[in-house]
Amino acid sequence: MPEALRADARHNHDQLLTAARAAFAEHGTEASLRDIARRAGVGIGTLYRHFPTREALLQTLMRDRFDGLGRRAAGLFAEPSPRDALLTWLTEVAAGSATYRGLPESVMAALRDEGSELHASCAAMRAAGSRLLERAQAQGAVRADVTTEELLALATGVAWAGEQSPGHPQMAQRLLSLAMTGLAR
């Protein structure tokens, strides 16, 4: 019988994630948790057993993306142009932050709150970006007074701007390119 419960719990977990992706895509990160549970065909208590907070749900949905951004930064470290590597990574951070309306605010809040469910993934992503920034600064491609927090705020701000301009798909790339010009020594 425990096997059946584990299979049932796994099914509920997967259904909740599928429903959350759809709800967040439609309504942003502030989508109703009751609606997510309803879409998944479970009660709100089941949702909270699997995901005690909204952030826990977001963490589960976004962990692979944030971890991927950390790995991507490590891969870009070998690129010949530190400036281009940093711009590529920031563009991908902005794109990842735009996955769901409201996610940029959640990312920035998580970076400031060590108790946040999202903090560990966001902090690992920040550390990976720090290495790219330090390399660009050491090569003289970026001003020495720029911090990783400022770059992440810039990328999430660009993601937010993209949310406000859905008819301009290249907006994020253009804004980041302009910002990189301003960040140059």
Rank of each mutant, 00 (worst) to 15 (best):
R83I: 07
A74W: 01
G75N: 10
S121W: 04
L33D: 10
T60G: 06
F66S: 09
G115K: 12
V93L: 13
R21K: 15
L152W: 02
T99L: 11
I44W: 04
L33R: 14
S121L: 06
G115E: 13
D84Q: 10
S130A: 15
Q137N: 06
T29Y: 01
Q137F: 09
T53V: 06
A40M: 08
A23W: 02
L61A: 01
F66H: 10
A94Y: 03
D113E: 14
G28N: 03
A37E: 00
R135V: 12
S81R: 10
H50T: 02
E105W: 07
G43Y: 07
D145L: 10
L86C: 06
S32N: 12
R21P: 00
R54L: 05
P52Y: 09
A127R: 15
S106F: 01
A78D: 12
G28R: 03
D145I: 02
H27L: 13
G115S: 13
E79D: 15
Y100L: 04
L90Y: 08
P104D: 02
R39Y: 03
L33S: 09
G102F: 03
D145C: 04
V107Y: 04
D67E: 15
S130L: 12
G45Y: 04
A31V: 03
E114H: 13
V107D: 04
G140K: 13
E114D: 11
S121M: 07
P82Y: 02
F51G: 01
Q137P: 07
A128D: 02
A127S: 15
D64C: 03
P82K: 03
D35R: 06
R72T: 12
G68V: 07
R71I: 00
C122E: 08
R126G: 03
L111A: 11
Y100R: 11
Y100S: 03
A56Y: 01
L57T: 00
R63T: 14
L151P: 01
G41D: 08
M125G: 09
E117A: 15
A141R: 10
V146F: 05
R39G: 11
R38H: 14
A127W: 12
A120N: 09
S130I: 10
G96Q: 01
A23V: 02
A74P: 00
D113Q: 13
F24H: 10
E150R: 06
D113A: 13
V42A: 11
H50A: 08
A40F: 10
G45E: 13
G140M: 13
P80A: 14
G43M: 08
E79W: 08
E114A: 14
H27W: 13
I36K: 02
A153R: 14
R34K: 03
E114I: 13
G96A: 15
A85K: 07
L154A: 05
E150V: 07
Q137W: 09
A120K: 13
L57H: 05
A128L: 10
G28I: 01
L47K: 08
P52F: 02
R101Y: 11
L58M: 05
L33Q: 14
R72I: 01
V142Y: 02
L90I: 05
A128H: 05
G140A: 11
F24S: 00
L61K: 06
T60P: 01
A73H: 04
A94F: 09
G41N: 11
